[in-house]
Design a binder for these strands. Structure first.
Length: 992
RNA sequence: AGGACCAUAGCUCAGUUGGUUAGAGCGCCACGUUGACAUCGUGGAGGUCGGCGGUUCGAAUCCGCCUGGUCCUACCA
């Protein structure tokens, strides 16, 4: 083995080997355990959040696999409608100078597929770097054939049950992307805005009670004035009671609009009058519905002013009687331009009463960054109420459990106030809505065009027969209908016949489905649904979903609703919610802030110039580049060193406290890289001392186990239970901590050192050496298995060499640590007596080291120590451990002093009641020792003071449990004894 | 406005049902390289557990209020 741990040389080699050996495929044996990966966007590249999440999932999967479960980690990617479409659009524009409209829908979709085949594998390749043991043979895509089938099925069934409907509704419209987006895709940002107070003249000579001829309304959106269809006042408002039912004349437009009484109007705010624009504001939409006002849309899809407005009722029917003329001057103006013009015109007309500056919140599209416009459009919706109910119950009754639990409240709060889900998107890339229209706009929802056409023919035949009495034509249509079917697409013969019959072909809806509609089917569509094959029966419901809290609404909630509806099962039994990975300062990582860390750079390292280039390369705001470059140079003056995947994974795990955001700490990453190095070197030591030696692998030779051997084996059992319990509770930080502590602070710091006197002692028996070698090897082998789910690569690399020595593998490379049994603690190997003996030994060694350090005695200088006040067991322990003391404390001798009075001047340390004396002659600085003793005495005094205070409190003695009081008394005695010894010593030295 | 979460060493974080001499890693100080590891070893310094009040024999831990921070939801016509 190399002297230094070099992860790059082992990691990809092992991954390829595992994959080639089919290690990631479900074993088909044991209890099923399955995790469905949250499918990353096919356009994506691995960021810290993925790396964190994938580490957690892989650790769970590897752990369960070692426990003998039939594990499936389902992998795949999401087609990510808007993101992918935008990316390919930009690419086509850059390479061919064409827009998607130049190409046309079909050609553009072909381009997207082409892109997907060429570049869509980026993120999955990166997943391999993380060591993710996903089953690549089942990789899925949310637009593959199976998904296509599942999506059609779900849509058609929801539609036939009336749970999907189409309607003209106000939606969040993105004027840049020309599509509706869901509430969740809207980001609200605080802004400074203006608040214009306008006068609306009363019509028909009516006056207010105060004698005015106008009402005052205030708005932040003057341009929507053109679409006002009413002015509301509060029904309780005495100032305007007489005006309800009267009209105002809408300025600039001249339309008469009614004054209505509605509780939406707040008497306290402004004048108490509010303009109502049902087609351009969500609140006004509700007011309009209550008050039966018309909807008047004044915007195009670009959010520019229409030359002529459009009027509808709430069923979406056009209202031809309403005068929809708009002032010509505004036609075609962008909304913000129109705003300026309208304010200017209102001012010119003397109708602008005042302008206030206010802070308000504006909705922005999270993809386009454009201001979202509430716009009246035809959209498809899922009626969620009936789906939400069982989804809430599943969490209430514990079928689905959130970890940590408090996320359930967030879930409930959202689910209980759910709006219908707008599922149509005006995009090209995605699952096209399976709905077809005839020339009259009648809709036919079906799994494919043939099915839709058959529905249409049926209806048409019925109509012709019953309404027109034309039996012959009806018959011909019906018999033609019989000929269809079998194929999902209309054959050319069928098309010809239709033409002959004078039946026009149906046209399919142009819209596609929201991405989350298909990813909502992820847990079961990946398992072959609508068929319920063996995979489905084995792996559904999945065991646990690992996801970020930010996606609970987008995805988790919708998965629960759709999965319950269509499979009758929950999608997963547990949801492990993790936090966000932030930078070292707690800032969200974002490209625009220039604080992004790429997990691959942490693994492979990156030099400073490349890192700066990466962070400043393609900024939206290039003026930030300088500051970002400086911050980067300050934080990483040497760039980033390679750390390896295992160290990165261990860092994530050690910071993975449930549900909490993590501030990524480079210091810890370095520390865990060192931890890997420690494991590496400890293994080198073991191999150097065991390879080619007799290490009792076959159990056929007698072994003699030393105290240290029995102790480390006992500690191993404790560590095994700790790690297992922590994993069960998703406390990866605790699992990592327990492992780290055991390996470094016990196995390396003490056990390896304790093994040296045995292995290097010529006198030691073969059985003793064999016992120590066997223990060295077997404990290490168990550590490797225990660590493998967290650090897969280094553990495999070392295990291949160690396991043959431990007798658990042949060493011919055909085996893998991946499928070795998870270490099980065995109670009969716990040895508390050995623990106490080792604690004593450590105490003596530390005591001597302490004196050396405090007294400036060279670490290598052999010492003669004296021991007094020892009990019989102290004497036994000394005899049993002389070689260890000699080696670890560098003692030349340790001699019992029968009469403490005879003690020469010494530096004294206490180990229990026993005193360890390091004679001062020629060694010790008197003043230094006095200072040290003073410090020690002071410390004891404080402890004594605290305990005395407690025991002096009568109610403590009276009310606290007897054992607690006893414990305090014991402490007091110990502290006092220690103080006495120290004080005696001080006096002795002082008297010198 | 409502709600959630957080506040422990210079930094990043642990601290299970109240009883600990409040811990870890990094950083810091001192000493140390012949036999696994300087990506190391040994020893050490460093904390009124955000503030105030309450419950209790006893509070980092439970309750209330306050301050500061993060986030979510709603509203701002």
């Amino acid at each position: 083995m190399d002297k230094t741990y070099q992860p790059e040389q082992i990691e990809s080699r092992w991954y390829e080997r595992w994959e080639a050996d089919g290690r990631f495929v479900p074993s088909g044996e044991g209890k099923p355990f399955s995790i469905m990966i949250p499918p990353p966007n096919v356009t994506g590249s691995l960021h810290m959040g993925h790396a964190f999440q994938d580490t957690i999932m892989d650790t769970l999967i590897r752990w369960k696999r070692m426990q003998g479960h039939n594990t499936l980690w389902q992998v795949g990617t999401d087609h990510a409608g808007i993101a992918t479409q935008m990316l390919v659009e930009r690419k086509v524009a850059a390479e061919e100078g064409k827009s998607r409209h130049d190409l046309g829908r079909e050609a553009f979709i072909d381009k997207v597929w082409e892109w997907k085949h060429e570049s869509g594998g980026h993120i999955t390749r990166q997943l391999r770097r993380m060591g993710a043991s996903v089953d690549w043979s089942r990789e899925r895509f949310t637009m593959d054939d199976g998904f296509y089938k599942a999506v059609q099925e779900v849509f058609v069934r929801l539609y036939s049950e009336g749970l999907i409907y189409r309607g003209k509704r106000l939606v969040n419209w993105d004027p840049t992307l020309h599509t509706a987006i869901s509430d969740l895709e809207v980001e609200n940002r605080d802004q400074q805005g203006q608040f214009w107070h306008f006068r609306y003249p009363l019509a028909d000579g009516v006056k207010t009670d105060a004698g005015l001829d106008h009402l005052v309304v205030a708005t932040t959106r003057p341009e929507t004035l053109l679409g006002d269809t009413g002015v509301a006042v509060n029904p309780e408002d005495p100032r305007y009671a007489s005006l309800v039912g009267k009209f105002v004349e809408l300025p600039l437009v001249g339309r008469r609009i009614p004054i209505v009484a509605d509780e939406h109007a707040d008497m306290e705010k402004g004048s108490g009058c509010v303009k109502i624009t049902p087609a351009h504001d969500f609140n006004d939409y509700e007011v309009g519905r209550r008050q039966n006002l018309p909807l008047i849309n004044v915007f195009t899809q670009d959010a520019a002013i229409l030359p002529r407005a459009e009027a509808f009722d709430f069923q979406g029917r056009p209202l031809p009687d309403i005068d929809t003329t708009l002032p010509e001057a505004y036609a075609g103006l962008d909304r913000f331009e129109a705003r300026k013009r309208i304010v200017a015109d209102m001012e010119a007309a003397g109708l602008l009463e005042q302008v206030e500056t206010v802070s308000n919140t504006l909705p922005y599209g999270d993809r386009s960054g454009d201001v979202i416009e509430p716009l009246l459009t035809d959209q498809w919706f899922v009626a969620v109420e009936s789906l939400a109910k069982p989804a809430i119950e599943a969490v209430e009754n514990g079928d689905i459990e959130f970890v940590p639990k408090n996320y359930e409240n967030m879930y409930f709060a959202w689910m209980r106030d759910l709006q219908d889900w707008c599922i149509s998107r005006q995009l090209w890339w995605g699952h096209r809505i399976p709905a077809w229209y005839d020339i009259d706009g009648n809709v036919f929802v079906a799994r494919n065009e043939v099915e839709a056409t058959r529905q249409y023919l049926q209806e048409l035949a019925d109509f012709i027969e019953h309404e027109q009495g034309d039996f012959d034509t009806a018959m011909r249509l019906r018999s033609f209908d019989q000929l269809l079917g079998g194929t999902p697409e209309l054959t050319s013969d069928a098309l010809t016949t239709m033409e002959k019959l004078g039946v026009p072909r149906l046209t399919q809806d142009d819209d596609v489905l929201d991405t989350w509609f298909s990813s909502g089917l992820w847990t079961f569509a990946t398992l072959g649904w609508p068929e319920r094959g063996e995979d489905f029966r084995t792996f559904h419901p999945s065991s646990v979903l690992v996801t970020g809290f930010d996606i609970i609404f987008f995805w988790v909630a919708r998965m629960i609703m759709l999965t319950l509806k269509f499979t009758g099962e929950v999608p997963f039994k547990q949801v492990y919610v993790h936090g966000l990975v932030r930078d070292g300062q707690g800032q969200k990582m974002s490209k625009s802030k220039g604080n992004v860390l790429d997990p691959i750079d942490l693994i492979d390292g990156i030099d400073l110039e490349n890192l700066v280039e990466k962070r400043t390369g393609s900024l939206m705001q290039p003026q930030k580049a300088k500051a970002i470059a400086k911050a980067t140079r300050d934080e990483f003056p040497e760039g980033i060193e390679p750390h390896g995947t295992d160290a990165l994974r261990f860092t994530f795990l050690s910071q993975a406290t449930t549900g909490r955001d993590i501030k990524f700490d480079m210091g810890r990453l370095d520390g865990y890289r060192n931890f890997c190095n420690k494991l590496w070197n400890a293994s080198r030591y073991v191999l150097m001392n065991a390879e080619g030696q007799d290490c009792g692998a076959n159990d056929d030779e007698p072994v003699e186990l030393s105290l240290a051997d029995r102790w480390i084996v006992s500690e191993l059992q404790r560590t095994e239970s700790q790690v297992t319990r922590a994993m069960q509770e998703y406390r990866f930080d605790q699992a990592a901590q327990a492992l780290y502590d055991f390996l470094w602070n016990e196995y390396c710091d003490w056990y390896l050192e304790l093994s040296k006197p045995v292995l290097w002692d010529e006198q030691a028996s073969a059985a003793a050496k064999r016992g120590t070698r066997r223990t060295l090897v077997r404990v290490l082998e168990a550590i490797l298995r225990l660590a493998h789910p967290m650090m897969p690569f280094i553990t495999e690399e070392i295990w291949q060499r160690v396991a043959p020595l431990a007798g658990t593998a042949t060493g011919d490379g055909s085996e893998s640590i991946m499928v070795q049994p998870w270490p099980q603690a065995e109670d009969d190997k716990l040895d508390e007596a050995a623990g106490r003996d080792i604690a004593w030994l450590k105490g003596v060694i530390v005591a001597v080291r302490n004196v050396r350090a405090e007294m400036n005695i060279a670490p290598g200088k052999p010492l003669e120590v004296l021991l007094t006040k020892g009990s019989a067991s102290d004497r036994e322990r000394l005899e049993a451990n002389r070689p260890f003391l000699a080696k670890l404390a560098k003692l030349e001798s340790a001699v019992w002093l029968d009469d403490p009075e005879q003690a020469p001047l010494s530096a004294t340390q206490l180990v229990g009641d026993m005193e360890v004396l390091v004679p001062m002659a020629g060694l010790i600085d008197k003043e230094a020792e006095l200072a040290r003793l003073a410090k020690e005495i002071d410390k004891q005094d404080k402890l004594i003071g605290a305990v005395e205070k407690k025991l002096g409190n009568d109610s403590f003695v009276a009310k606290a449990p007897a054992e607690v009081v006893e414990k305090e008394r014991g402490k007091l005695a110990d502290f006092q004894a220690a103080r006495r010894v120290l004080a005696e010593q001080r006096d002795k030295i002082a008297a010198l």
